[in-house]
Write a protein that binds this DNA or RNA. Structure first.
Lengths: 153, 153
DNA sequence: TATTGTTATACTCTATAACTATA
DNA sequence: TATAGTTATAGAGTATAACAATA
């Protein structure tokens, strides 16, 4: 009867599954997200919205489509997400004069404040220490993930 | 007018975003999944179902709850997933005599055949080459992800 | 009382296609 | 004709809570 939930992981044969990249990416992400929501307990900050707002802060006037392309967010989802952020008073839209099909995004004062208040915590959650890795391991992992995420093959 | 979709990534300022572990895990996963679905075009194999069936093959008679714990799949989702697999004739359930609340899972003959037919392809998709990494980089990445996914902190 | 699995509900994210208004 | 964004719909996956049967 002692710690049956610990036994499970040990007595189960994983075979070659820990060599499947997609599975390990998913399991690592689950854990990272759990950590995020544990540390951000109470706050209504969502990783995806935080990332979008941070990107808008870095690139004022960036177009919706560009945000979606950089962050791999589909157009339909971008629309709903931006509508939420606009409704929440965090983001504002403007039609650029050179292309009236598009929307340029900026942070409102409230949005700017929101980013400034949460960025440190957001950044602090994603550290070597909270991931249980050494600084070297953490930096190596990030470099390899960047290669996987950004390099064209 | 030349290749505006290429410009975007270059002229956009990412700031410290590529240092955010959660974001890079997500972007790496998106790419890995795209590769999966490109290579498995036509087949109806889903990564999650393939992983569950492979785990059942390795551990015949494993309980639903154990599968969920190892793969971080929530009970409610496990129920629906197993029902799909049972309906598809790939997995069979049995109530163990020592705990009649539980379900033990096994592969049917069709399930066994399905795993054998798809495992190689499933494994082959997730290689260093298709990820655009060297063998060393690929193995390092997997080792770090395993540490992130499995180590208790 | 606690645990195994089920059901029901709601929400996030994804996928797809049809649509508008511009270019 | 192609592109930027919208709308609508469907599905996967997750989160949560209430529930029945069993331990």
């Amino acid at each position: 009867m002692a710690a049956p939930e610990q036994q499970a992981n040990d007595t189960i044969n994983m075979g070659e599954l820990p060599g499947i990249l997609g599975l390990m990416l998913r399991l690592a992400q689950v854990r990272t997200f759990n950590q995020f929501f544990r540390d951000f307990d109470g706050s209504d900050a969502r990783p995806s919205e935080m990332t979008v707002m941070w990107l808008i802060e870095l690139n004022p006037g960036i177009r919706m489509g560009e945000v979606g392309r950089v962050l791999s967010i589909k157009p339909a989802h971008m629309t709903k997400m931006v509508q939420r952020l606009v409704t929440a008073g965090l983001v504002s839209r403007a039609v650029p004069s050179d292309d009236r099909r598009a929307y340029c995004l900026s942070l409102t004062d409230a949005g700017q404040k929101h980013v400034e208040e949460n960025r440190d915590a957001y950044h602090r959650v994603q550290t070597a220490q909270s991931a249980g890795l050494s600084e070297d391991e953490f930096n190596t992992l990030l470099a390899l993930l960047r290669k996987l995420a950004f390099d064209k093959v």
